[in-house]
Write a protein that binds this DNA or RNA. Structure first.
Length: 244
DNA sequence: CCGGTTGTTCAGCG
DNA sequence: GCGCTGAACAACCG
């Protein structure tokens, strides 16, 4: 689940904002009794994190690779965390659930959150350039620089910027650095809009494709970078920048 | 039935 | 302290 899907979750649980947790259950080992009777102050997202703000502490939920949720219906058994309200319920599966004791503003910097109105292009560009020896495919997946980006956003943003994933940060021309940072931001919103219309797959120009949607050339699939996550590459449309 | 995957964290090692 | 590796989480899809 990438950042935009969390924004959709946040919108879907809006009816529960201000409501009291009537019951908290599941196998999350966080002392669930503590949640009973607490009102929801706010629902927030930071990248791929779903944050439930309660009086005095917060829940931090990450859906990892396989996580999913249901609202108002418990389709699967064994949820990690279920919250019941007077007007419905939220059921989270296969997720990481933790408590954050500190105020959220002390923990998270929304200037790096791709889908926050506070997102700060200049700051992100500067953080990006602090990793000159890294491959761009790894930096675009760094949650502290591109919070909310995942493997789909990585591949589509690199494609749109015309950059090969194995390019080193230090070999990118300054103009391409800016283009990439903006492409990650812009595609995050495209991902959000398309997912709401259930048309995400139609936005893919290289991801999970055998041929490029633009030039129809062969798309190479390979594990790249330190993180060894799958990259999809069009050799015609994406340039590998190297030391001259 | 099998293999691949829209992630992250942490232990253990050298 | 560092980077690297593998494990753990364990379901859905084709």
């Amino acid at each position: 689940m990438e950042g935009p899907s969390l924004v959709i979750l946040k919108e879907e649980v809006r009816p529960f904002k201000g409501k009291k947790i009537l019951k908290a259950s599941g196998y999350a080992d966080i002392g669930l009794k503590r949640l009973t009777g607490k009102p929801i102050k706010d629902f927030k997202t930071w990248g791929k994190l779903f944050l439930v703000e309660l009086p005095g502490f917060s829940l931090r939920i990450h859906f990892l690779l396989f996580g999913f949720y249901y609202i108002n219906e418990k389709k699967n058994p064994n949820p990690k965390l279920s919250l019941t309200f007077s007007n419905g319920s939220l059921h989270c599966y296969l997720s990481s659930v933790r408590i954050i004791e500190e105020p959220l503003k002390n923990v998270f910097d929304w200037e790096v959150d791709l889908l926050s109105p506070k997102w700060n292009f200049k700051k992100v560009r500067k953080l990006f350039l602090q990793h000159p020896d890294a491959m761009v495919c790894d930096v675009v997946l760094d949650p502290d620089i591109f919070s909310g980006s995942g493997n789909i956003i990585k591949n589509e943003a690199l494609y749109r910027a015309g950059i090969h994933p194995e390019t080193r940060v230090k070999h990118l021309p300054p103009r391409k650095v800016s283009q990439l940072v903006r492409a990650v931001h812009a595609y995050s919103y495209e991902f959000l809009r398309a997912t709401k219309k259930d048309k995400l797959v139609s936005t893919w120009k290289v991801y999970d494709r055998k041929t490029c949607a633009v030039c129809e050339g062969k798309v190479i699939k390979k594990f790249t970078g330190r993180l060894q996550r799958n990259s999809f590459i069009c050799r015609n449309c994406q340039v590998l920048y190297k030391k001259q």
